[in-house]
Each structure stands twice: as C-alpha cells, then as structure tokens.
Amino acid sequence: MTVYLPIAELSVNIFIILGMGAAVGFLSGMFGVGGGFLITPLLIFYNIPPVVAVATGANQVVASSISGAITHFRRGTLDIKLGTVLLIAGLCGATAGVWLFALLRRVGQLDLVISLLYVALLGTVGALMLFESVNALRRAAKNQPASLRKPGHHNWVHGLPLKMKFKKSKIYLSVIPLGVLGFSIGVLTSIMGVGGGFIMVPAMIYLLRIPTNVVVGTSLFQIIFVTAYTTIMQATTNNSVDIVLAFILMVAGVVGAQYGVRVGQRLRGEQLRALLALLVLAVGLRLAVDLVLTPEEIYSVVSEWGY
C-alpha cells in the first residue's frame, strides 16, 4: 500500500515507513535514546530528500521523548534551573542552526553537510560505544568489577568563571560549558534532526559531573522544548516538515518503543550496547560510502522552492 507524502512529494510504501519507525522505536526503547540519529539516515537511504528527513526527524523526536519527559517531571527527577540554562542556549543554537540550514540549502551544500555530520557523529559515537562495551565485556569475563568514576571529582571545566549554583544537582557550575553544550545540541537538532540525548547525557555525566539521577530528566526537559521549537522553525523557514511522514513514524515508533523497553530489561547491557554500536557504525559507513562512490548522475536540478 502506497501513501503520498505531501511535502517530500513522493509516494512511499507505508509498511516500509511503519517498519522503520517500529524498528527505531524498538531500539530507542531498548537503549533509552530518542532514535533521531537512526531515523534520519534511514529516511535518506529510502530516498526521502534530506531536507525533509531532518525536519521530520526533529518532529518525530518530540513524540518519542514526551512520555519519558512526563515521567521524570512527575517524579521530580530533573533540575529545572539547569535545564532552563541548557534550554535557552539550545533555542539560540536551534535558531542559528535553522538559519544555517536555509543558507546551506540555498548554495546547494545541505545534503553534503548533513551526510558529513552524520558520518562524523555516527563514526565517533559508534566507535566509542563499541570500545566501551567491549572493555566492559572483557572485564565481565575476567570477573573484575567495573572501575567506578568518582562523582564530584573536579576537572578543568570546574575552573571556569561565571559560576551559578544549581540546588537540585547540588553543584556549583560555570554557565560557559552549559551554554556551549546547549547551543551545540540546538544546532545539531536543526541540522541533523536529532534530539541529542546521546551526546548530552554522557557530556553531563562525564564532563560536567552532574549527578546521574537528574541527568536523563534534565536532558529530556531540554530536548522536548528544543525539538518542538525546531519543528516550528523548520516549518516556517524551510516548509520541510512532512506531517504525514512524521505521523506514520511516530505511531510506529511509540509502539515499538514499548516492546523495546521490555526486551531491554531482560538483556545484558554490555552486549546490547555492543550491538547498537555495530548498527550505528554500519549506518555511518553506508553514508560514507555514498559520499565517496561515483554517483550515477553528477548533475541535479532544483527549482527555486523545491528540493
């Protein structure tokens, strides 16, 4: 059964889109990630114009993050003040990102930049995750306990000026690293269609030493508002949010996520992470190959307003 996507302006098989949404939803439930960083490349592989894939990806992350955000809000496992600082920076980043997105599109380099960013990001994240999970598996085989990092241990980030007190997190932190982190995530949301949790969470834990019990809630608080804002900005600036595509992905995604969570609870973390790392690397590799292989057609035509 085919369905016509009004903004992407092409007909697609609805079951392939549903399958993509469900599979990524399943993985995101299993690993507790938003899934935007897998949805967008998969849509590009399925010939959805990257412009539409990125804007629609941001829209889809809103749906996949809201239930987690509500849960953390209810339980109070988030630092609103910290989240607000990250959010303000995130909104600035998203605004700059959407503007950059429109500029790159006008000069015909958007598709390239999206692919390059994905190759860099998926390559780095995939390699780090693989390295980390293989080490963990090795330790488990030798029956060694994992070396615990000391929370509260200070690093260079804590020497920066313009400090602010965050009561809930019980830390005293400079707004500079928070601003840089929030801004970068905002830019990534608008140019790559990701929520950015897979960067923000490790950065908050390892770099900023924020207590783990508020990290996920606080990052979801930032993500939900930044992705919602980016969706509206993309719709008004680039007219590239495909609501039909987004809705199919969302419905399949939220259902898939529920089953992912259940399976995830029964499996061992290190093996799961190694598998996700391999998947992330494979997607990155495929994008890299497409950039290097001689294309069948080196010319392309775009109209003033088309893709």
Binding site: S67, A228, V254
Partner: peptide, 19 residues
C-alpha cells in the same frame, strides 16, 4: 506557523496517548 504548531501538538498527543 499553524502547520508547525499542529505538527508539534500531534507529536505530543501521540507520545502522551501511547504512554
């Protein structure tokens, strides 16, 4: 603008109803 807001509301509703 209304279209973008609608897309966000639809996403919020979908995620919330599923939860």
């Amino acid at each position: 603008l209304s279209y973008g807001v609608l897309a966000v509301v639809l996403a919020l509703l979908t995620g919330w109803i599923a939860s």
